[in-house]
Design a protein around this nucleic acid. Sequence first.
DNA 1: CGGCGGGCAATG
DNA 2: CATTGCCCGCCG
Length: 264
Amino acid sequence: MKQTTLWARMLRLTAILALTVTSAANARLPVFEALDSASGHPTRFAQCPQFFVDGKPPAIPASPKLRELCYEAFAILHSGETRTPVYVAQRLNRQTIEDADEKRATKFFADARLPRGERAELEDYKRSGYSRGHMAPAGDMPTPTAMAQSFSLANMVPQDIQHNGGAWAKIEQDTRRYIRRAKGDVFVITGPVFTPESPRIGNNGVGVPAYLFKLVYDQHDNRAWAHWQENREGERVGRPITYEELVKRTGVEFLPRLVVSQLN
DNA sequence: CGGCGGGCAATG
DNA sequence: CATTGCCCGCCG
């Protein structure tokens, strides 16, 4: 008898703990609440044009489950269909990289700004065999708030564990190394690519991308290139592809045409 | 080789 | 939640 009582207590405690966890995670991110209450709806890119070249976000065909989310140091176009980002945009420069020395705060959380029917939950990734792979990397974040926000699952895709810690991590570090030596702003857009055969994980069916890309545009030098990686173990860092090739493969024009016409 | 940076899971 | 220990790959 005593044992069942103990079990009941522990279960209750666990439930309370889970609730506390959720609210505490959100409470620690006051920026989210401020943006939400101010607008009354999920944030729009109009509120954070600074992350896009000439303030112009890439045009994506309309879809009911696409949502635009602004964060302190990046912006996300999120898909409620795959429950992942479509792309994540950043504007970086030497200064932001020098500021990116925050201690890594590994606290992943489901993004409360997204409806439950559209977002990934921690449970979806747990024991899925895939890691939670940042699109905007934690290592890029210039402030503690930005660091915390980067752990939103809205910024994640299910990524092969070896790829995430291997070739992909190297690409992230190479990109930071490049920006550290850049003369002006560098715009980076990172995202997943799915195929009809792409698997899904968890009760919510979070999409597992077949490929990941990272587009880098150096505004000062008018140069752009992209890394294109298969989301698999054993993938190596290859030679970057051209912007045109990226557009061909994704069907998305990420940069304003005027800018593209002037690329070196 | 050790340090670092990308993660994971178990425990209180 | 926080803490801890662990894995792995890359780099100097």
